[in-house]
């Protein structure tokens, strides 16, 4: 059994769930530096589904593909600590300002270069945008079928995969021929923890740029152990039409961004004392709000 070739699409995102008071600059723009960067949560659910396929089919390989700035290599290492085999960082100024469509185009072109894969798995959506668009758009760019909101890969036989989808008001079991694009929901199982052996094995894994910027005394390691080299692709490594990249490839433009300003209403402040609560309930009953 030769196993399957899986690509996990992942994104490093600012942890918008834990936004501190210094997250916004005085001019109303987002202070990204103040937010910790994390592995997008649903992409971890996606990685776990990939790892389960690898558990069941020895010989399966998992490659993490991410587009982002240089430091996004962190999530590739994180994925390798949990069982991914390698990763590709797609990074270039030319991708800056991409909306979901330009992102999907760039990822699609990178996937066309990878060419040999059976399953592409991504999280349903990233927490910094919540759009859930890149998965289906990548599928369309590659002309592949898509199966969204997957909670569980139930079975793979030969070139056919059976999955359970979690919809708003129910579930569906669907089958689809390989290759395809799958997006995974947060209702799918959490990703397994880092594996201590893999952590030791991959902790020095680096991209070319990271290597150039470090004063490693062990440069020879990277020749002796090729698995420590995280691939870094720039725009020149993929075939692309510059018109479809970055800002110019993005049909959507941000017209304005407003900081959220709260216009305070005159609220009645009440304590938890019995008198106060008693009074409140009487007011609500008298105004026919309740009762």
């Amino acid at each position: 059994m030769k196993g399957y070739k899986i690509i996990v699409l992942a994104k490093q995102v600012p942890d918008t769930r834990n936004v501190g008071k210094d997250a916004m600059k005085a001019d109303g723009t987002v202070n990204r530096a103040a937010l910790p960067a994390i592995f997008n949560p649903e992409d971890l659910n996606a990685l776990e589904q990939a790892l389960r396929i690898k558990d069941s089919f020895p010989g399966t390989t998992i490659t993490i593909l991410t587009m982002g700035p240089g430091r996004a290599a962190e999530i590739i290492r994180e994925g390798m600590f949990r069982g991914a085999d390698d990763g590709i960082l797609l990074t270039d100024r030319a991708f800056a300002g991409s909306d979901t469509l330009a992102t999907s185009y760039a990822l699609g072109q990178a996937l066309k270069k990878i060419k040999d894969f059976d399953i592409i798995i991504a999280g349903r959506q990233a927490i910094d945008g919540d759009t859930a668009q890149v998965g289906p758009q990548v599928a369309e760019k590659l002309g592949l079928p898509q199966v969204t909101y997957v909670e569980e890969v139930k079975e793979i036989t030969g070139k056919k995969i059976i999955m359970k989808r979690r919809l708003e008001r129910g579930v569906e079991i669907v089958s689809c021929p390989l290759p395809l694009v799958i997006t995974v929901n947060s209702s799918a199982p959490d990703c397994r923890a880092r594996n201590a052996k893999l952590l030791m094995k991959y902790k020095h894994a680096k991209t070319v740029t990271e290597l150039q910027n470090s004063n490693e005394d062990y440069m020879h390691l990277y020749n002796d152990r090729p698995y420590l080299n995280i691939q870094e692709w720039t725009v020149s490594d993929i075939e692309s039409n510059p018109e479809e990249l970055g800002l110019s490839g993005s049909p959507t433009k941000v017209k304005t961004v407003e900081n959220v300003v709260l216009q305070a209403k005159e609220a009645k402040i009440i304590t938890s004392a019995d008198n106060d609560i008693d009074q409140l309930m009487r007011e609500l009953i008298e105004s026919h709000t309740i009762g």
């Binding site: 918008t16 049909p251 941000v254």
Partner: peptide, 15 residues
């Protein structure tokens, strides 16, 4: 709303 709800964005598709 965007970016974890810290901003409200107005998006347009001009072309």
């Amino acid at each position: 709303p965007a970016f974890g709800g810290n901003i409200i964005a107005t998006i347009i598709n001009p072309d």
